[in-house]
């Protein structure tokens, strides 16, 4: 059924696919070509924490849509 929540969720998750693909390439290049594995892992951890918190915030917003 086409509800506002469904349409918003679909558009948002299509955009998320792009973000995840781009982020994966970025993390791959950082861990593959970076001089320090620890720095790479730390930066990746901070990045993933920020992104996942924003993602869960978005899921809550989509869930509240009527």
């Amino acid at each position: 059924m086409l509800t506002l929540a469904n349409i918003s969720g679909l558009i948002f998750h299509l955009y998320m696919i792009f973000l995840v693909a781009y982020s994966s390439m970025a993390i791959f290049s950082l861990l593959r070509f970076g001089q320090s594995r620890i720095t790479g892992l730390l930066a990746t951890g901070v990045y993933l924490a920020l992104m996942s918190s924003l993602y869960f915030q978005s899921l809550l917003l989509i869930g509240k849509l009527e």
């Binding site: 918003s8 948002f12 955009y15 973000l19 781009y22 982020s23 970025a26 290049s29 950082l30 070509f33 970076g34 720095t39 930066a43 990045y47 920020l50 992104m51 924003l54 993602y55 915030q57 978005s58 917003l61 989509i62």
Partner: peptide
Amino acid sequence: VALIRTAVLMTAVLGLFMTWIMYYL
């Protein structure tokens, strides 16, 4: 509007991460 703001924030975080990666590598 809040959802759009969150999506833009995510893009900005990715942009900042990419900026740092290119600087670092």
